[in-house]
Simulated assay, not measured.
Amino acid sequence: MTRNLVLRFRSPDRPGIIATVAPLLTAHGCDIRAAEVYGDPDTGHFFSRMELTSPIGPDRLAALIAPAAADLSLDCDLKDLARKQKVLIAVSKFGHCLVDLIHKTEIGQLPIEIVGVVSNHETMRKLVEWHGLPYHHLPMADGKAAQEARFLSIIEESGAELTVLARYMQILSDEFSTSLEGRCINIHHSFLPSFKGAKPYHQAHARGVKIIGATAHFVTADLDEGPIIEQDVRRVSHSVTADEMVAIGREIEASVLSRAVRWHAEHRIFANASKTVVL
């Protein structure tokens, strides 16, 4: 049975990496259908993502290429594209990003399986359960530590490989953020690094900006400082009110977040020091 796989790796940059890997894959019956590479002159790292058709499953193929990977110091993994990534979504009272993610999943535009929705409010319960998804209400009344402990247990119990903060308007503890580093994406309703914190569109309006935007980034213990995955912007004029900026921003937020989630599910994102490489 032919499988559609993704081979990703990073390594110290040096000549001959692809010249070694490509013939090895061909020798084991694989066909490279797409490939992207990037060598970062700042960090000295080389990144590659290859889409393959393979007669061999990912575990077996990984074992076959392991000696060459060791010789080249490749940090690599193989993923089966037929397997959808399990995603848990967190939301507060604003549902535009949540609705967009659910809709795009249902029409097959996002290769993910939504395993549930977590919220500190009941606002989105009816919508989520109408779509047949589990809804976990985690109020803050019991205290932040207890709430986050339950949140983490839901992540573990659901098997979620990615947690998405789809306008989840809570500041996460350092311990919680660190435990999810590299597997939690946030949408920030601002074109970071400008206008952090609460009401960024109102901050932008007060400064008379001509471009507003949104940023999807990995969550780290440093608030709104995690590696940026995707951003987008929209031009505005002096006549646009703060409330109109909020409405425009919601459209940008939804599209930026869904792209970041899709890229993660397609195994395109590499952490690269304080930045990301998206192939």
Rank of each mutant, 00 (worst) to 15 (best):
D59I: 12
V117D: 01
P58A: 00
S190G: 11
R207G: 01
T276L: 13
R33D: 02
A141M: 06
R8T: 15
A260E: 04
R259I: 01
V246S: 08
E253W: 06
V99W: 07
I65E: 00
F270A: 07
D243E: 15
L98G: 07
L192W: 05
G44F: 12
G116W: 10
D142H: 12
S194C: 10
I187Q: 09
L5M: 02
L7S: 05
A166N: 10
L257W: 02
L52H: 03
H267V: 03
A204I: 05
D42W: 08
G39Q: 05
A27N: 04
C184I: 01
S239V: 11
D77H: 11
P227A: 12
I107M: 08
N272T: 02
I187D: 11
A27F: 05
K104V: 00
H137R: 12
C30P: 08
R49M: 02
Y135A: 03
T163K: 07
A254C: 02
M124G: 14
C97W: 14
A221E: 11
S179G: 06
E230F: 00
P139E: 06
K79S: 14
A35T: 10
S237P: 00
H202M: 07
G29I: 14
S177W: 01
L25A: 09
I65R: 00
A198D: 10
A260F: 01
D142S: 11
P23T: 12
R183L: 04
S92E: 10
K79M: 10
R83V: 14
L64G: 03
K104Y: 01
T43E: 04
Q85D: 04
S190H: 10
W130N: 13
A149C: 04
C184M: 15
W263R: 09
T105P: 00
D224T: 12
L88Q: 05
F195V: 01
L25K: 05
S258T: 08
N120C: 07
M50T: 04
W130S: 12
F46L: 02
P15S: 05
I185P: 15
I212G: 03
H28Y: 03
R207S: 01
V219A: 06
T178G: 12
V115A: 11
R10A: 09
A27I: 10
H103R: 15
I154V: 06
P41S: 07
A27Y: 03
V115D: 10
Y135G: 01
I107C: 12
H202F: 13
V6R: 12
F46P: 03
G95Q: 13
R8V: 06
I107Y: 00
C184Y: 01
A198W: 07
I89P: 01
I187P: 15
F151C: 04
A221V: 02
P134I: 05
I107T: 14
M169V: 02
G116A: 08
H217L: 06
C76K: 12
N186Q: 09
F46I: 04
R83L: 14
H137N: 08
V117N: 08
G29N: 05
S92V: 07
A247K: 15
Q231V: 00
V115M: 14
E253M: 00
S73F: 09
A82K: 13
H264L: 04
D59C: 03
L152P: 03
H202T: 11
G249I: 05
Q203C: 09
V37E: 14
V21D: 08
D174G: 12
P15E: 10
G116V: 00
F94A: 14
E175K: 13
K86S: 05
S255K: 13
I32W: 01
L127Q: 03
T178W: 02
